[in-house]
Design a protein around this nucleic acid. Structure first.
Lengths: 264, 264
DNA sequence: CGGCTATTTGAGAGAAATCAAGGATAGTGG
DNA sequence: CCACTATCCTTGATTTCTCTCAAATAGCCG
């Protein structure tokens, strides 16, 4: 699955000449005659807010959206910027972050395929959204969205569910930030990643990290050194192997999970 | 304003014989013949999700809701409990909290008049909701709400706005928990309270705390001792006076605000 | 291969948690 | 109304962690 994402991204990247900052592709231009239009064949379709749409609605939806390639480190939008679009992540990964004036940063979430970003307050985005790796997002104009919400109830429902999911995720994250130890934080992070990564319930599982230690530290409310030391500690306990900086092999998922919950 | 709340609560408390656990009052029984029904005269009406309703809609709304007195320490609902109602706070204050298995607690928000609680995920509440002090809530059955959402668009709009507000508040709280120092945390807490408390932009302002130090500690991700020491420190800096445990006088709001943002 | 960046590791300082009393406050019942 | 008790809050001493500062190592890109 990761391989197919990589393929998709690099093929898109090659077209990237068109716009050095961020590539905009009109999906209607890509495929014609497919039932449901181009969105029907989107790799994120099944997990996205458009998944409940019928063929005809989906075609209408497709006419209103654009996909956009956001390269590593580039931002999709910034906090306090006027919110004109809602986005759905297609491939890759986005980090949402908030900053203090002196540069301290808190990453509040990593968002991947099918997830929605772009929440606003009084018309302005609530946080910075930046690509952790080369990422494709689906850009939905707020104006078009308003129409969809009334005409296509399944979008309303799906969107509400996504927002409530995000609320819950933030609550879970709050208890992590405020009350968990570094080991519990890192264990929770890895377990959540493993859950995202596959349905394989086996005790050993490979986790791919798109982000660097810095992002992990800012996500968990730690310094980069503490993250590094904690991973080392888990490795020396025999819980992990670290084949590369961006990949971690969990040797004992159940044990790691119990650590994540604070059972010592 | 606080005085009027107290009056209201104690008058309700006296009726409390009816139900030792939590008093249920049918507002339709209270007043008749008022345009908009009993909800029109609700002290929280202007800030609540029902504020945009016309008289007739409001009467329909009133027929479907009940008010409920929740005494100090009692819970409105618990995490993982089936979500049958959405609530709007009328008077008093509710704390939302999540727990770890070993009892560690993170308070994610304090909710007062006009604010909504009861967010769910797959039909189950996301956190514990408990009364910080004697509190009156308006109980809206989810089933009735679903009907309102389609028939009264202003409710849909208001509710969406409330949820987005909550998302933003949680993001702000995440950066507080993950990246702020104890002084910044306490200063932020007090400044936010002061903002809630009044429109008085003067430099000196009185803040009423309904909750104890324990709740503040669990809200800010600190121990109770650190909260206490930090308040003492701010007091000795001449920034605060503490006339009673539940009341704090901010002597220099601008200075406190600059501390809250991390400017040293 | 060389330079750049990311990550790991080490030593030391500082800060908040923990452990332990002591003091204030509020609510209860005489 | 006041004494009494339970709870809450503050303060002090000590310990433990995590951060900070510093440097070495590893990985990556051209």
């Amino acid at each position: 699955m990761l391989a197919s994402i990589d393929t998709r991204i690099s093929s898109l990247t090659e077209v990237e000449v068109a716009s050095p900052e961020s590539l905009v592709i009109n999906p209607t231009a890509e495929r014609k005659g497919v039932a449901g239009g181009p969105c029907a064949t989107c790799s994120a379709h099944n997990q996205a807010i458009c998944s409940g749409l019928k063929d005809q609605e989906l075609e209408e939806f497709a006419r209103n959206v654009r996909t956009r390639l956001v390269k590593t480190g580039q931002s999709v939008y910034r906090e306090f910027e006027e919110a004109k679009y809602l986005y759905s992540v297609v491939t890759g990964e986005i980090r949402l972050a908030n900053l203090l004036d002196d540069g301290r940063r808190q990453v509040t979430a990593f968002k991947s395929a099918g997830e929605v970003i772009g929440e606003e307050k009084n018309g302005y985005y609530q946080s910075d959204a930046e690509a952790v790796c080369d990422t494709v997002v689906c850009q939905i104009p707020i104006k078009a969205l308003d129409k969809f919400l009334t005409e296509m109830p399944s979008i309303q429902t799906a969107l509400t569910a996504k927002v409530l999911d995000e609320l819950l995720a933030l609550r879970r994250h709050a208890i992590l930030l405020g009350r968990k130890t570094p080991i519990e934080k890192v264990a929770t992070f890895l377990i959540n990643r493993a859950g995202k990564a596959s349905g394989n319930p086996s005790n050993e599982i490979q986790v791919e990290l798109t982000m660097g230690r810095n992002d992990i530290a800012d996500f968990l409310g730690l310094t980069i050194e503490t993250v590094s030391r904690t991973i080392t500690k888990l490795r020396k306990m025999g819980l992990l192997e670290v084949p590369s900086n961006h990949s971690i092999l969990i040797k004992d998922r159940a044990w790691l999970k119990s650590l994540a919950e604070g059972e010592k």
